[in-house]
Amino acid sequence: MRKKYLPIIPVIIAYLVLFLVGKNVSGTWQLVATLLFYCALGQAFNIFMGMTGYVDFGYVAFMGMGTYGMALGITRFVFLQEYGAVIIVIGFLLALLMSTLLSIAVGAVALRLRGAYFAIATIGVNEGFRFLIEGARIWNGSEGIIFMSQLNDILGRDAASALSTFWADVMVLVIAFLAALTTLLFMRSKIGYALTALREDEDAAKVMGINVTKYKIIAFITSACFAGSLGAASWALKTPYVFPPEVFEIHYTIEAIIIVLLGGAGTLLGPVAGGLIYGISKYYLSIFIPGFQLLIFAPIIIVIIVLFPQGVVGMLRDYTKNTVVGRFIV
């Protein structure tokens, strides 16, 4: 492996340790699954927000699309049930297709805007989309889709239950890792340089002869695809139903923003660190002072922005610059 890809090692170690702890220490799998979800969410969101500096407040809509993609795959292709798991693959393909299509539609309009205007434009996206589904009664409207029985028919009861309690989380782990790998590949290629340049100064990047629109769209679609597959794996396969108010719930977007900022926007390890810190603190807060875990968002965001705007990993990277450890931290 070439030197420039070394920083993937700490990522592999982090996910491996998480997996082994969950697998071998009894009673921890539930927590590990939650942490994996947050890491994957951060990892996917970081590709867009971290690398371009644009904040997408409608991000959860892509996860919602992915969830619907899997739900439609399972309910519409149930006639293929003798092929079993093939239907899950179809579900993932649909999830990818639908989140890509939505991201192209949103990106074509919103990515023409910059900074705060982009953020404001995207706030409307998931709310608007949710009301469109409910109002126009698309895909069963507000009643949602429940596909527990189809899933049981396809895989058999035991396999379906193993899927929702274990294999779906493993898929989330794979998605988190693939998103991290993509981030590193981007960072080490011309795409990453273009994104860094446009994040620092979009006008200057244009003057350099960088087609900024192209790279913004690449990052946006890639990030949306990971969100879609995350929705399909973590939401549709773990809990085999989909209701519009749940999958278009804006607080997942806010959690994604917190995780990315906490860990360090635009860093490779940031989402892992952010996901773990956020997930663990939320978990214990909900045990010790139930009901307040959502209230903690505001102070966390303020503390991050004031004290360490570069995030945990961003700070760590500056401290370890020019040392051996520094080579692994980006």
Partner: peptide, 18 residues
Amino acid sequence: HLFPNMSVYENLSMGAYP
């Protein structure tokens, strides 16, 4: 309009993007 968080060398290298 330069990239404030990049070094001088990195700024110049970005110019050689095409």
